[in-house]
Design a protein around this nucleic acid. Structure first.
Length: 104
DNA sequence: AAGATGACGCCCG
DNA sequence: CCGGGCGCCATCT
């Protein structure tokens, strides 16, 4: 049964140098339409690799300084950008959805 | 209880 | 590529 903690756990699986999106994290965590919930969790739990979660298409959804810092942190991890967005082609992390019977 | 809000996503023109 | 509009969902006013 889904819960905010499962979302946080999913986010924690994103390895350094890789990124994902609100929608993808939501789906991997079992919330097909919970992109906004992912954002809520990111806002509340600071102990997460928050910089690795981007908007659809690899776009940074933060504003001002926060946005600059996120981009900076990602580039420091080796993530490259194509204009305003991170290059998902190269760095998007593919969750192993694995809807098996016993989960993972 | 009703409306507004926001680290979202997707379709249209 | 860009803005506008609508659907989603939990939380706040």
């Amino acid at each position: 049964m889904p819960s905010p903690s499962s979302i946080a756990a999913t986010i924690r699986r994103i390895p350094r140098g890789k990124v994902s999106t609100y929608g993808a994290v939501a789906r991997a965590a079992g919330y097909p339409r919970g992109a906004r919930l992912v954002a809520r969790v990111l806002r509340g739990a600071f102990d997460l690799p928050w910089q690795r979660v981007l908007g659809a298409g690899g776009e940074i959804k933060l504003r001002g300084e926060s946005a600059a810092e996120q981009r900076f942190r990602l580039q420091a991890e080796g993530v490259t950008f194509r204009g305003r967005r991170a290059d998902l082609k190269k760095h998007e992390f593919h969750f192993t959805k694995a809807k098996r019977k016993t989960e993972r």
